[in-house]
Design a binder for these strands. Structure first.
Lengths: 252, 252
DNA sequence: CGGATTGTTGATAAAGTTCAAACACGGTGG
DNA sequence: CCACCGTGTTTGAACTTTATCAACAATCCG
């Protein structure tokens, strides 16, 4: 089903009935080319976008023309669910790769809120998960050095893609340029290039041909101080990537 | 009323009836000293905290002992509303000053969700506002230099406090140490000190005795690339602080 | 008053940016 | 098939920003 990946692998998931309700509220499915802008900052929106395949980026622009990516969405993500309550977005939404998206009209969401409060709560949860990721991005940019920032992003993306079946646990497609990575991690593409080489030289991970290959998952997580707690994974998933204990011991 | 400041000055506000419902769902009011930790990362929570007076900070810790502040809450903020759907928090919550907080049990929120969908939507909006601020913090840390980061934080805080009547539009109490400001803006307290002196020397703003005094609001906003759109203010408020047009013109 | 926290300053080192140039590589058109 | 173009990657050198370390001054508080 088109909504199979929504909240997949998370501590809160959808029941089959809820999935059916959500699926039924999809009005249409569309495809866009890479770099297509789906929603522009400031526009009033009447539908929310569920990402089915491909990658979508959300970015904040400033008058200088510089952009900061504030999130990368993977299949199963409700990209601009927040548009439902906010009505107008504070950032752009654009396709990083060719994408397939499902559109859910906001009045269908209103119906869900009135008639299916438990499902509404889960959608709320999904939007809070988004905020939790934002918080980690704040942490990443505020506290980590360039190499750890990139490492953290790769760890996060690895887990998120794994949760929806798009990573084998250490290797995944990530068709982003070094410039994109710079916009994600708050650094220039030149520096991204140098840091990637360093990560490769240390045997931690290789990024080539739009594929990220993590050679030593625990070591990369350690460098990145990556603990997947904020992703609210379900128990088996959390167990697979848990580093919490190791990190806690380290803290003492 | 205790909930008078909730969503005050925003594009979405509460009706008197909704305020009454929310107020009635408060179970108790508590006071804490500065530096008291209200919720620790990972704890399962059963109540959400509405800030009545004082300032609260939310911060992410890492095993090295460094902390990154991910938000500063002002009176009227529903500090950990997200705890309702997430159940466990991905960060600490602590008092930056002596505070007075109201506790709303999560089952009361569930009742609101079932019986008052319109109010539930507004609470959802409040949590999305939080996410919108996170996004700007990501932008701030990723794209701005130290002086602009501090300036941006002061601009944001000025507007937020003004919206709830705690700034006169350019001057407000902000009892944070330079170390705290460093944790907010991702820099060392030494560097905060130097940047504050520079801002003072340029005649932009002065921070002394726990009071921020912005001497030239538009100039500080320009340095910070501050546009309050992401705060979803109501029309008069937005108009008062709007810099959008000026910035848009600048962009061309 | 004494002790603890916060703020200030200087010297030095590290991290990251900028600018510029070269290189790789997959099209695409002749 | 080759020449050419555009996009993305790689490298070097000079420069800017920020961190680190260390000392000292100011302030607050009991």
């Amino acid at each position: 089903m088109r909504v199979d990946r929504v909240l997949k692998g998370r501590s809160t998931t959808l029941t089959p009935a809820e999935r059916a309700v959500l699926d039924a509220s999809i009005r249409e499915v569309r495809r866009y080319d890479a770099r297509h802008i789906l929603v522009e900052q400031g526009t009033t929106v009447h539908c929310s976008t569920l990402l089915i395949s491909g990658l979508i980026g959300r970015h904040v622009n400033d008058p200088n023309g510089t952009q900061q990516m504030v999130s990368v969405q993977v299949p199963g993500d409700f990209v601009d669910l927040h548009g439902y309550a906010l009505r107008t977005l504070d950032h752009d939404v654009s396709a990083l790769t060719p994408v397939e998206v499902a559109l859910v009209p906001h009045d269908a969401l209103w119906t869900i809120q009135c008639e299916h409060p438990a499902l509404a709560r889960k959608l709320w949860f999904a939007s809070l998960l988004d905020a939790a990721m934002h918080r980690k991005w704040v942490y990443r940019l505020g506290q980590l050095k360039a190499n750890a920032r990139l490492a953290h992003f790769f760890c996060e993306t690895n887990v998120r893609l794994f949760a929806v079946g798009l990573s084998d646990g250490s290797r995944f497609a990530l068709p982003l340029t070094q410039f994109d990575l710079g916009e994600i991690c708050g650094m220039t593409s030149v520096h991204v290039n140098r840091v990637l080489r360093a990560l490769r030289d240390e045997g931690l991970c290789t990024v080539r041909n739009a594929v990220v290959d993590i050679h030593d998952v625990p070591a990369l997580a350690r460098l990145a101080m990556f603990d997947p707690g904020y992703l609210y994974l379900d128990a088996p998933m959390a167990h697979r990537f848990a580093l919490a204990d190791a990190l806690a011991r380290l803290a003492r």
